[in-house]
Design a binder for these strands. Structure first.
Lengths: 143, 143
DNA sequence: CTTTTTGCAAAATGTTTGCAAGCCA
DNA sequence: TGGCTTGCAAACATTTTGCAAAAAG
């Protein structure tokens, strides 16, 4: 992701009255740089060179804060750790059932799912989640 | 669910060479009776009258076994406990963001999602997950 | 009689919390 | 300076595991 996106995110945080710290900045940058939907552990490992004493609690704190401010989305999958996605544009995820890798894809014809579900269930529907599962290209070869 | 479904399930287990135990039978019956997609804790509480010494491990063991044999599906949601669904017919779930209740609904026009995702991502797609989130009828009133 | 299953407790895992010390504005 | 943030360790919740005793077939 571009440096522009980082600036936009920093502005959003400042406007929300959130203080900046070196750790916070590093976590945010990392999320915006990578497209890999990292887990907390991946973030932790990738930053331990720069911050040898950083605790996972700091990462969790900041991810929750980013989520609250609307800068990232948390992706949750039953067994494994959550992943974090700083790409807030409309898209869905393809999840590899072998290595856990997550790849974005776009799909447009779900306009009436929420409406139909609402009629069906009586729910006041506010969002939906769509994912596909299968083997990523790497795992198709190696497994 | 009907007694017929229990018989079918019991037959499936017998054919898979699985022994029957009172606990196993009770867990399976409960899953087939209720439409409420119970958690392990709900199953545990509902059976502790009949089996005062039953451990959660037994419930987890049996749910995994049922899953492996294809009798139930595990529904996972980030923070909370898994829920278990013995309705193996094609359907989707509406999840209440307030109380966690899960209600079934049907939707038919997702035939090409997997194909499109596959073209988009290079994945060999084998399944998909669709859910809607919102407030159930109860929580619309009380909240 | 052999093998599976149970029940219990301990362990593992991912995430959250409490709190003193430190840092940001 | 005053309040937010960090780092650490302990706490938490859910699920899994190891193992001896009990039950199934």
């Amino acid at each position: 992701m571009s440096a522009v996106m980082l600036q936009t995110a920093l502005t959003k945080l400042r406007e929300a009255g959130v203080r900046m710290t070196p750790q916070r900045h590093a976590i945010l940058s990392y999320l915006l740089e990578t497209m890999s939907h990292p887990t907390v552990d991946e973030i932790y490992k990738s930053l331990e060179g720069k911050f040898p004493n950083m605790s996972v609690a700091t990462i969790y704190n900041n991810l929750r804060l980013f989520k609250d401010v609307g800068l990232v989305r948390e992706l949750t999958y039953g067994d494994a750790s959550s992943r974090y996605d700083a790409n807030m544009s409309d898209h869905y995820h393809a999840v590899c059932i072998h290595c856990g890798m997550v790849k974005d894809f776009h799909y447009s014809s779900l306009t009436d799912v929420e409406k139909e579900a609402s009629v069906n269930t009586g729910f006041q529907v506010t969002s939906h989640r769509l994912e596909v599962y299968g083997l990523c290209e790497n795992c198709q070869i190696r497994q």
